[in-house]
Design a protein around this nucleic acid. Sequence first.
DNA 1: CGTAACTTTGATTAGTATCAAAAATGGTGG
DNA 2: CCACCATTTTTGATACTAATCAAAGTTACG
Lengths: 246, 246
Amino acid sequence: MASIHPLAPMFDKLASQTSLSEADQAALYSIPHRLSTADGGTYLVREGDKTETCCVILTGFAYRSRTTGNGGRQMLAFHMRGEVVDLQNSVIPIADHSVQTLTRADLAFIPQKAIIEMAAHFPAIGRALSRQTLVEASIAREWMVSLGRRSARQRVSHLICELASLQKAAGITGGPDFAWPLTQEQVADATGLTAVHVNRTMRGLRNDGIISIDRHVLTIGDWDVLRCEGDFRAAYLHQHGPANAA
Amino acid sequence: MASIHPLAPMFDKLASQTSLSEADQAALYSIPHRLSTADGGTYLVREGDKTETCCVILTGFAYRSRTTGNGGRQMLAFHMRGEVVDLQNSVIPIADHSVQTLTRADLAFIPQKAIIEMAAHFPAIGRALSRQTLVEASIAREWMVSLGRRSARQRVSHLICELASLQKAAGITGGPDFAWPLTQEQVADATGLTAVHVNRTMRGLRNDGIISIDRHVLTIGDWDVLRCEGDFRAAYLHQHGPANAA
DNA sequence: CGTAACTTTGATTAGTATCAAAAATGGTGG
DNA sequence: CCACCATTTTTGATACTAATCAAAGTTACG
């Protein structure tokens, strides 16, 4: 326990929702992996790719996206510290969307086979991984609600709340200020709006004193107001562990 | 093999993408289950519920939905013949959205435990089930693209293509005409539009001779045109089985 | 045959997109 | 430290898609 293992973010994430044993931890920490660093904008998975490794995010941010026939781009999810980016490719080998880093990021690449074996031998890890997949599905459902039924201001506010909650849970931040790695263009791609309209919407939130942004750090002036503006209820993030330990 | 087993739709669905053995089939057909029939509009899962059974759809249609703070409703997915509706609840026990029947439906209820055990003892079934979960996630991503980046006409056309493709794959229909169980109000809830606008959009498609509807049966006049109108590319449905049999 | 649910139409408005361009910001090399 | 460049943010003017409100038809159903 002298130095921190490079895969500690992944273990922390898995252990945050299920309790894992020392044996589970040892198994994870002995898994073969390759570390690397990528600049912002690097593709981790490209639509149509057939991947054989899983990518874990150790620091920084990444996002999933898909492109329409007319060239529109829709972001589908954000990922950060400890998250495994392409678990699904072990079952559906052809990627139907892309994953790119949003910022410079430290990554670990693990062979899919190694992950699958570990999940089989250490069922608690397997459960934690499937839980992660299902929480991602829940988040996707919430995004559908935002995209389909919420106003611009609600969408932006909701996204801010989501990223704040996730960063807090990931231990990236404690307080009301946290990393805001998105350009307004990217917020637009995530919320289904145009960059111009995002600009006006965010300026509205700033003028109302609800948020402020300084050099990619966002500070929430009034959390309750923002949560209300964004119709944000955190239950969909399932951050409090399974209610039954089955 | 004299009569058809009531769970045949579920087996067919699972076997359509992975090859399953006779032993797998026997295991599935001997699982404990309770059959029942529900009218349209019946809740199968209610937001906040803690469920202990999985519901399989044998005939008819169901949908998932969530409600916003202002009372808006967003549908999240449709389900039909052979699909298991609440697999995820085995890992995330508190439902974060509702599931309701769209039409009168024949259902089978299976204890979650029995499904989990079967998946453990018959790995091919386990793999087929996780594949189904991941395909659903892929469909959710495509819905996000529609909701965020496609026009009303594209959204409606895309939805028609999707339901046509799914019904064809499920063996519910062969030809260009298929069941259209949705009211325009429900199409609106699925596409993030209002019922009035859906009405105008669908009339437009009918006026252009691309579709026609008669008593809950929709006929696609020109599949290629509709697919083009809806920016529909079927890859996201992953209907052709895993490329690697790992 | 009556009633409720659904579809259709019209008129008006709100919200967001589009187009264009200016201002601010951040990073780079000299 | 400054000048320059690319990127991002901001602003303005206008167009358009889709929402809203209201009501009339139509269909399905008991």
